[in-house]
Design a protein around this nucleic acid. Structure first.
Lengths: 108, 108
DNA sequence: ATACTATATTGCAATATTACGATATAAATG
DNA sequence: CATTTATATCGTAATATTGCAATATAGTAT
């Protein structure tokens, strides 16, 4: 086995899980945090920033891009990345929904 | 390779990533959501609920327990699980911190 | 055109995750 | 005590992820 049985779960559960998995690597957390700080959305210096090989960084960027979390726009020979704000808000709402369930209910 | 280079990142980045990874499986999202709904914190029927083998469910529960997200208390031959609310709040704050960075800054 | 720079993709090795049957452990019941 | 019930752990197969060197692709500059 080793394959996640996505069909057993709701679409929302799969979506949340996939987004969480994308955030589930420190390099990708670092990329996101760096993009938040640097309004300037650079690329390339991620390799400097992270200390990972160029190919590895490129791979992490692709994963974030595939989920729509970041966007890349070509600028000459460089690619400028930034956070997709609308999408980020969407994701925040999904997680907020998950977090907010717990509260006044008495248990344990 | 295949081993995450945790030493390259800040402790916060590693912590967030590990928590996100825990949420990064639909079965574990389902477990959390079910625990939120059922104030009653049952166990066992997770196997029914999820449609996964008993051993698999037990493994997912352990991962959540290892990160402190859920707690299990022995009740006779059963184990009653529930969300660790204090911890959950902590985790929520961590994620909120990550999410809230993005906003008014102009970029892209 | 040629060399240089920046990024993406491919291929592969190391490691991690998912899933489950089988087995252990422990309480509950006959 | 033997059996049943509930959960955890072990061992293992299938698959996924991480990371990088090598290579491809594409723009820049000389």
């Amino acid at each position: 086995m080793g394959i996640t049985k996505s069909n057993l779960f709701t679409e929302e559960q799969n979506i949340i899980a996939n987004l969480a998995k994308a955030i589930g690597h420190p390099a990708r957390v670092a990329i996101i945090q760096h993009l938040i700080k640097a309004n300037a959305c650079i690329n390339g210096d991620f390799v400097q920033e992270l200390g990972l090989a160029q190919a590895t960084v490129s791979q992490h960027l692709r994963e974030l891009k595939d989920l729509g979390i970041i966007q890349g726009s070509i600028e000459g020979s460089r690619v400028s990345y930034c956070i997709n704000k609308a999408r980020w808000k969407e994701i925040q709402d999904l997680f907020t929904g998950l977090f907010d369930g717990v509260d006044t209910k008495g248990c344990c």
